[in-house]
Structures are given as C-alpha cells and as structure tokens.
Amino acid sequence: MSQFLDFIPKIPVADSVEDAMDLLTDTFAGFFDVIKKSGKFSMEFVTDFLVMIPPVLFILIIAAIAFFATKRKFGLAIFSIVGLLFIYNQGLWEELMNTITLVLFSSVIAVIIGIPLGILMSKSKVAETIIQPLLDFMQTMPGFVYLIPAVAFFGIGVVPGVFASIIFALPPVVRFTNLGIRQVPKELVEAADSYGSTGWQKLYKVELPIARPTIMAGVNQTVLLSLSMVVIASMIGAPGLGRNVLSALQQAKVGNGFVAGISLVILAIIVDRLTQSFNKKRQ
C-alpha cells in the first residue's frame, strides 16, 4: 500500500515557493530597499521623538487622555501612571518607546489597508469569495511563518517586524468592516437609496457611521494583535520589549522575562482600554 502512495513523487512545493520568493526579492529589490530605508528612517524618527519627551510629561499626557477618554473616571488614569512608572523604574523606557512605535506603525498601516478591503468585501461578492479564504489562511498560519518572507524582503530589523505584524494583525479589521457594513439594517440602506444617494454618499453618510462601532471593535483587535506580534518580531531584530523577553528566554532568566512580560501586559491593557473607550465615547 505504501508503495502505491510512494508512487507519486514528492511535489516540490517548498522549492517552488522558494523560487517564487527569490524571484520576487530579486525583481523588486529596489522597491523593497526604498520601503526598508524610508520605513526605518520614519520609525527611528518617531522613536527618537518619543524618547525625547520627558518621561514624566509622557506619563501625565497618557493619564490625561485616559482620564478624559473614560468619561472623567480615575481608574484607567491611575493605572496608566502606576504602570508606566513601573516600566520606567525597571529601566525599560526606551524599549517601551520602541514597542509603541512598532505597534503604532503596524496597526495604522493595517487599518489603512484593512478598512478599504473590508468595504470592498462588503460591496462585492466576488471580492468576498476571494478575500475570505485569504483571511482564514492569514489567521491560521502561525505568526512565525511571516517572519520568513519578511526577512527575505527586508533583511532584519524593525521594518520586517512591522511587515510581519501587519500581515498578522490585518484580518480582524477587514472582517469587522465587512461585517459592520453588511449588518446595516436593510431599511436604512433602502432609505438611503430611495432618496437618490450615490454609492459613495450611501457609504459615507449611512453605512460607515452606522457600522463604526463594529469597525472600531475590529480596529481594537488589530491593535492588540500587532502588540502580540512584538515578541515574535523581535526574533528578526525588531527592537523593543519583545527583545528583552526573547533574551530572557534564551538565557533562561525568569526574573527578566517576567518584568518584560508584565511591561507588555501593562501596555496592552492601556492600549486596549483606550481604544475601547474612544469607541464608546462616540456612540
């Protein structure tokens, strides 16, 4: 029986994917290089700027935003102050800023790509049948796998880290945008149509505003996913808190790993609550 199975020679999937990657890398080398250089430049610029802000001022700004975003409640504001002070106290301030830059770039780019894709999906059945399986694929593929093309295209450093994070964090915002627009009550779509709206008018004046809470839930998920890629991205040289977790792992230093891990959790909680409260506030 096994002879029969062995009758079919191994299909060279791995080889052909590699060939295709090589081809891509070679053909678009100039393009990738431009992206890498400009990306690295702008991210370093943002990180430098963040590091330049006095930590006390930075903490106070975050606390103030948290205070007003949560309808003048003290909970999140106090948590932000204590948490950020803790990170500063542990000497992880610069790493924190690096991580924030990475999350900022990857989630903003993911949202910029994701929302139009979601809109396209909601409007076109063809687009939906093509994009849906791609999203399933992206979500089930382990995050590590994205590191390989990232390295192939961009070498090592922060840019491939952002690239891998974008791919990893993209699906929720696309799915939620699609869902949000499709869930707009039929009667409201009919109302928009019956008054003679063009497609764009309908989208801007009715569908997007009504779908916004759902889209924002997707944005929130995307931000958190890109944060969760931080550690994995550090394997290809992206700077930040992830690198500390990684080196603690490699050297089996439980204490260091714990501190860096807890710092990531603090950042995640602040980011999550902030994005959620922006959503609630506007409803």
Binding site: K205, P209, I210
Partner: peptide, 8 residues
C-alpha cells in the same frame, strides 16, 4: 418606511 428608516 414601516420601521421609520431613520438614521440613528
């Protein structure tokens, strides 16, 4: 419209 069709 039956259910008013007002934009919330």
């Amino acid at each position: 419209f039956q259910n008013f069709g007002l934009f919330p």
